[in-house]
């Protein structure tokens, strides 16, 4: 059984901490602190350093899930947490003002990591805002990153999050469980 380090990134309030909590088999380690700035408009607390959770995929191995802080002022943590990672799960909050802008911002920010590793994208909060559709996200990515998994995801739903992570792992090697 192998172990893999997976990074979970995305803007503030996209559901990174929730997603890790949904799939982690251990109580996740979090670094939540009371939000004091604009983040407070979205939620009471925010991740200031990292989240950590552990997940097992049958036949594949153990996945160490590292959630990055969503706030840009903590972006130094993004590079620190990226080290040793094999894949990136990018969560985009569909209900934010300009989700495409968020998508491109995070793809640019993790460009170095993505060129060497794989990425899977989860669109969250589609129950609150149904547009843009998943197809429109695919269209945005067609020329930048073709053929990557893009799913609509409810971060609270174990199956949704696990399926997205599974897609990322099989993107690394489809023959993994063979």
């Amino acid at each position: 059984m192998d172990s893999y380090k997976i990074l979970i990134a995305g803007p503030v309030g996209a559901g990174k901490t929730t997603a890790i909590s949904s799939v982690s088999k251990i109580p996740p380690l979090t670094t939540e602190a009371l939000a004091t700035d604009i983040t407070r408009e979205y939620k009471e607390t925010t991740t200031v350093a990292m989240d950590y959770g552990l997940m097992t995929l049958s036949g594949i191995g153990t996945l160490h899930l590292y959630g990055t802080p969503g706030e840009v002022r903590f972006d130094f943590m993004w590079d620190i947490l990226s080290k040793g990672g094999v894949g990136l799960v990018l969560l985009i909050d569909s209900s934010r003002t300009d989700p495409f802008s968020d998508l491109h911002f995070f793809l640019r920010s993790f460009k170095k990591f993505i060129t060497k590793n794989r990425v899977a994208i989860g669109i969250t909060k589609m129950d609150l805002c149904t547009t843009p559709s998943v197809d429109e996200y695919q269209a945005q990515l067609r020329n930048i990153l073709p053929n990557i998994p893009v799913f609509s995801v409810d971060a609270r739903n174990h199956i949704d999050v696990a399926l997205l992570i599974e897609a990322l792992i099989f993107s690394l090697d489809p023959k993994l469980a063979a």
Binding site: P149, V153, D160, A167, L176
Partner: peptide, 26 residues
Amino acid sequence: RLKHWPNLTRLQIFPHATRITALWSQ
């Protein structure tokens, strides 16, 4: 030829669907 990944979280899943998609996308 696969146009792009299906939105598997909103479709009926079954064993090996993710692996087949991953293979065809690469």
